[in-house]
Simulated scan of single mutants.
Amino acid sequence: MRRLMLSACLLLPLAAPSLAAGHAKVAGNDKLQRSLQKLDPSELVTQVCDLGAMQAFAKDASWRTTDRVLIDAISTPRITGNKAAGDGGALRRGNDWYRFSFSCTLSADHMKVTDFRYKVGAAIPKSKWADIGLWN
C-alpha cells in the first residue's frame, strides 16, 4: 500500500481556517479530500490523524517547528470506531526524530479530527532510523 506523505507545508495551509475552531479538517482542498476518500478505512484514519498531529504540534511552542509526523512509524495504531491510539508515532523537528504516543478522535466520516492528545518521548537514535523508515 502506498502511503501519502503529507508535510507541514502542505497540511497547515489547508487546515488553517479550522485551527481557530480547534479541529483538523481536511475539507477545504477538494483534490486532497477526494484522494483521501479513495483510501481504505484504516489508511484514511492514519492520514487524517497525521493531519491532526501536525496541527496539534503547530500549536505547541515546544514542537511548533515539527515538519513531519507519522503516527504509525514504529508501530501500527489501534483503531476502534472513530478513535485511533498508539505509542509508535514519530515526529521530525529540525534534524531529529522523536517518538510520541497519541490518542486521536475523528468525526463519524473520519474526515475531521475532533480531539488529538499526545505525549512526546525521547529522541530516536539515528542508528535506528533506517530500520524504522525514517530519513533526514
Rank of each mutant, 00 (worst) to 15 (best):
K119S: 10
L39C: 06
L70N: 00
G121I: 14
L14K: 10
D30N: 11
L91G: 07
A15N: 02
L106V: 11
K128L: 13
W135I: 06
Q47F: 01
W63P: 01
S42T: 15
K119F: 03
W97M: 05
N95T: 12
Q55W: 01
V120P: 10
R92N: 02
G28D: 06
L91V: 09
V45T: 13
Q47I: 04
I132P: 02
G88S: 07
L14C: 14
S18G: 05
L12A: 07
P13E: 08
M111S: 14
D72T: 05
A21W: 07
W129L: 07
V45N: 00
G133R: 15
A73I: 08
D72A: 09
N29H: 08
F116D: 00
S101P: 06
G133T: 15
K38H: 12
L134C: 11
A53S: 09
H23T: 07
A21M: 08
A53T: 07
M111V: 13
P77A: 14
C104A: 12
R68H: 07
A16R: 02
V48S: 02
D67F: 01
G88A: 12
R92F: 04
A122C: 08
L70E: 00
Y98D: 15
D72W: 02
R117I: 02
K83C: 00
T65G: 02
A84M: 09
D109M: 01
T80I: 04
D115H: 09
S62L: 01
S127Q: 13
A16G: 05
A24W: 07
